[in-house]
Design a binder for these strands. Structure first.
Lengths: 223, 223
DNA sequence: GAAATTCACTCATCAGACAACCTGAGGAGT
DNA sequence: ACTCCTCAGGTTGTCTGATGAGTGAATTTC
């Protein structure tokens, strides 16, 4: 049995070959790649195959084709696929970075939150309490919603986007955890950390918000 | 001159249309999309156009086509394009998140660094000093290299990847800054913060590393 | 010298044909 | 009753040739 998966789709092979040649530095960033017909001849495939390979690289953000002018190199490495990174790396590393984000989010939220943020936080907190015992998935989603509210209150779109990137992988991991430990039904340790955090943010007490977040993180890190 | 970008490439239009239909929830994740010929008829374009549109979505990680079986939905939203996010959002938000990452990196580095990390840190520190006055680009690169060494010493691949994602955008911003303020030639404020940070990490003093990083950040934030 | 034009090159799109492949249904053999 | 085989229909993969349309530079024209 071949240890490698079926890998004889011409389009994929052509795309891989192009990626390799790009990675080797054959063309400068911004330079024009050979024309479709030339590439087709070089790679020994049809024009449409080359076109589809180019479209794949375009989807990866590596090249850009301009009608009448040619295909141009935009980046010599594919755009980072965070979904893949977050799914490949160990979950503890993901959780570590997540907490990094949330601690700073708590600090910023405490100094920037407005009335709407505070209202949203209180609502999310109540929803989280209500979801206790309503099933693992519901509880996890409510927990994530609360943490999202904190991040949103930090009023930094990049931070928000970063948090959202992490959510899918975190959700999976948390579901595994709650399934294994039965954390959902109120027997959660460190139960009022969340209420304290919300109050610290509402009071604008950045130091306290950071302190609570850090403590909560430490407790989760060493179970 | 058209103020709006060129938007009449059929392939792009087809891809946008498919994205819209996917976003609308017309198909479940994992479901099979209509066949290429069907889609071509529905969209009023040729089959090759549909194929290239599908290839673009495949590059975005949204669909996957299997020969003989069909095209299947993998994700209903495109994979996050951080390059675009970092280039679109305000630079102060990017810098804020960068510091978030680096403060935590300093903390982790102080408790996890090994001899190789410390050696690399000292080397990067010396290189940064040497690059002072060797041109803005050289200095900025040396500065980034030092900060990268700190992040690497944290021994968290996700954190490292995150830092690398931010580097290109940060480099541009820093080049603009040094060009405007002439920070390169030794007249940098807060000159030995970096040396102190390296020593704190080498000593394993996490508190001090965080303190120095935070102070450094505050000074940069309010120029 | 500057503006308009021409022209070669390139990508964009289509239609048609055939190959490779997957899936499910139904038949052959046990 | 069960397994295995075969086959047919549908689907994607690939190639080819033709035509449309945009770009950019050389060329012509004024």
């Amino acid at each position: 049995m071949t240890s490698s998966i079926r890998r004889h789709l011409l389009t994929d092979q052509a795309a891989d070959l192009l990626r390799a040649r790009i990675a080797s530095g054959e063309w400068e960033v911004g330079a024009k790649l050979p024309g479709e017909t030339t590439l087709a001849a070089e790679l020994g495939v049809g024009r449409s195959t080359v076109r589809e390979a180019v479209r794949m690289l375009a989807g990866l953000g590596m090249v850009e084709s301009r009608q009448g002018a040619g295909v141009f190199l935009r980046r010599s490495s594919p755009r980072q696929d965070w979904d893949r990174v977050l799914r490949t790396e160990e979950i503890r590393h993901v959780v570590e970075v997540r907490h990094t984000v949330e601690i700073e989010a708590a600090r910023l939220a405490a100094s920037r939150r407005d009335e709407a943020d505070v209202a949203a936080l209180r609502r999310a907190l109540d929803a989280r309490s209500a979801a206790s015992g309503a099933g693992a998935a519901a509880f996890v989603d409510a927990d994530i919603a609360l943490h999202r509210a904190v991040v949103v209150a930090a009023h930094n779109p990049v931070l928000t986007e970063l948090f959202e990137t992490f959510v899918p992988r975190l959700r999976e991991a948390m579901l595994d955890l709650t399934a294994a430990l039965d954390l959902s039904a109120g027997n959660e340790p460190d139960a009022d950390a969340h209420r304290l955090l919300v109050e610290a943010v509402a009071d604008g007490d950045a130091e306290e918000a950071v302190r609570i977040s850090t403590a909560h993180l430490e407790r989760l890190r060493r179970p």
